[in-house]
Design a protein around this nucleic acid. Structure first.
Length: 514
RNA sequence: CGGGGAGUAGCGCAGCCCGGUAGCGCAUCUGCUUUGGGAGCAGAGGGUCGCAGGUUCGAAUCCUGUCUCCCCGACCA
């Protein structure tokens, strides 16, 4: 057993936060922009987002939802109409007040005082209010319902503390907005979206998640119910990976979204909204990354197979490139996970070994190296990113197979990697959810211990509200804990409330969170 | 937004206390050697020291302001 020389300098176990940042730069996913809280998403990071977008968009459209685009600028007045929405977002708004710059006489530029906007515009932090305006125009009759819209957009929230992908001032997301005739219809849509997110997270991103309802204090501003999917990161902290809200008639009242029912009466619509963002990429990193960089699940990998010819800048290179190009065509003609295999022949000049480690850090699922001798023997050298090392000799675990066998096996390998990443994350998650905790003392002991990874704790409660809930969350806050959600699929409660001692009605998950 | 730390070559860092015109490792480029798994040797290129003022004959170094990043807290669909 030799010491393994990992591709990153920081190990997860030593400094998870520094490791996370190193993955992002080493995998060339994103970089700082110089503007507070804003990042440049580079091709490999954006390529992963494009894959997520594509797969999610297919699911959205399959549900009969249509894409639209609404303005990035929202009249300030819109936000004054829904009281809790104001409270939720007022503190983090970017506001546009001028429409022209003039020279300041010192070589610089300043907003022209003469060009002040009569009514300031806010850069959207979310689009409920402006889409509400549109819904009020578009909906007249019960025949116009349900109205199912979605948009892919950027949003801005002036965050105090930012982290790449997890919390940035500007981020990319998808926001679905729907209007329905009844509460039941709107709740059904809320749950449909939640289930869509669960399926996308688990099947596409290989992120095991727990779907459930957020407690009252964690609701979206203006929502009647907020539901989430929660994923466990490798340090045991929870990441809210997607949310779906039942908004009741709150926004319908604020924007006047009404329809005439079959009896001729005017009714307010019940609306929903739901979203996932580039934060998912942070979740993928912290779930699947290892001490050699990222490991991208094949379904969302921009390149699933990367072929690296061992070029030597000699005339023989040409034959080797031909051999690799034939391999590329063979593999690209295959289908895996329901789509043509995405394969890249990396012809860039440079040492094969250096390029190999670049792709390891980026996390391409299958890396294939081909040298002159491989070519002579009709072989290729295959490296599975999810099983990188030969533990016996501390070297990369290449397997040598014929070119034809590899191309035939590539789809099955990709499917196996997709499944292996999910299984690994699922086992880790399941091993780190603690049940049977029945007192706050036990909770405190669990999280106070020198647990490297305390994970999540499931407890029972009586769903206290308002002041009683506040008292409960204060106790948790002292331990830096939050209620993640009330798992949809949990067993029925059978004990007493950990906060009040009353008979419990639900099970909740308690954890530290991003 | 409060407390702490940091910004010097693509990356990681030294130099700063005690002012004298910038250095190391990796990476890059060139040459030679090597050639089945993260090559060796030699040489070279690359930095207005985050930005703006100030002190000084002279500022990476001292002073003031400001921007950005990291950690802790507050806040956070």
């Amino acid at each position: 057993m030799s010491a393994i020389r990992h591709a990153l300098t920081t190990k997860r176990a030593d400094d998870f936060s520094a490791w996370y940042q190193e993955v992002i730069s080493a995998a060339d996913m994103a970089e700082e922009s110089g503007v507070r809280g804003c990042m440049v998403i580079k091709p490999w990071g954006y390529g992963i987002w494009e894959r997520i977008q594509r797969l999610m968009d297919d699911r959205i459209k399959a549900a009969g939802v249509q894409n639209c685009y609404f303005p990035i600028f929202i009249p300030l007045k819109n936000f004054e109409r829904e009281a809790s929405h104001v409270d939720g977002f007022a503190k983090e708004m970017a506001v546009v007040t001028h429409h022209r710059l003039i020279a300041d006489g010192k070589g610089g530029l300043i907003p022209d005082p003469e060009a002040k906007l009569e009514e300031p515009l806010v850069v959207r932090p979310t689009s409920e209010t402006i889409i509400g305006d549109a819904m009020a125009r578009w909906i007249q009759s019960w025949r116009d319902l349900p109205l199912l819209t979605n948009q892919w957009a950027n949003v801005v929230r002036w965050e105090m503390r930012t982290r790449m992908f997890l919390r940035t001032s500007e981020f990319l997301w998808q926001e679905g907005h729907t209007a329905h005739a009844t509460r039941e219809d709107a709740l059904e849509e809320t749950h449909r979206a939640l289930e869509m997110y669960r399926a996308c997270a688990e099947d596409d991103l290989a992120l095991p998640v727990i779907a459930g309802e957020k407690p009252e204090n964690e609701r979206f501003p203006g929502a009647v119910e907020t539901w989430s999917i929660e994923a466990m990161m490798q340090d045991g902290k929870a990441l809210q990976a997607g949310t779906s809200h039942y908004l009741g008639t709150n926004f319908a009242h604020a924007a006047g979204i009404q329809y005439q029912d079959k009896e001729g009466g005017q009714q307010f619509c019940h609306t929903t909204s739901w979203g996932v963002s580039t934060r998912l990429i942070g979740g993928v990193i912290m779930t699947h990354g290892d001490d050699d960089g990222l490991r991208v699940p094949p379904r969302i990998a921009p390149h699933q197979v990367v072929i690296i010819p061992m070029l030597r800048e000699t005339p023989e290179d040409e034959a080797l490139l031909d051999y690799c190009e034939d391999l590329r065509k063979l593999v690209a003609a295959q289908a895996a996970l329901g789509e043509p295999v995405r394969v890249l022949l990396d012809k860039k000049p440079g040492k094969a070994a250096a390029k190999r480690w670049d792709w390891v850090r980026k996390g391409a699922p299958l890396i294939v190296e081909v040298g002159p001798r491989d070519m002579a023997e009709g072989n290729v050298a295959v490296l599975r990113r999810d099983r990188l090392w030969n533990q016996d000799n501390g070297k990369p675990a290449f397997s040598f197979v014929s070119r034809e066998d590899f191309s035939a096996q590539a789809p099955a390998l990709l499917e196996a990697i997709q499944q292996a990443l999910y299984d690994e994350a699922r086992e880790r998650r399941d091993a780190n959810v603690t049940r049977g905790v029945t007192s706050m003392d036990q909770v405190a002991a669990h999280f106070a211990d020198n647990h490297a990874r305390p994970g999540w704790v499931e407890v029972q409660w009586s769903k206290p509200t308002s002041a009683a809930l506040e008292a409960a969350t204060e106790q948790l806050k002292a331990l830096k804990l939050t209620i993640r959600n009330v798992p949809r699929d949990a067993e029925p409660a059978d004990g007493t409330c950990i906060f009040t001692g009353a008979p419990a009605t639900e099970r909740i998950l308690v954890a530290r969170a991003y």
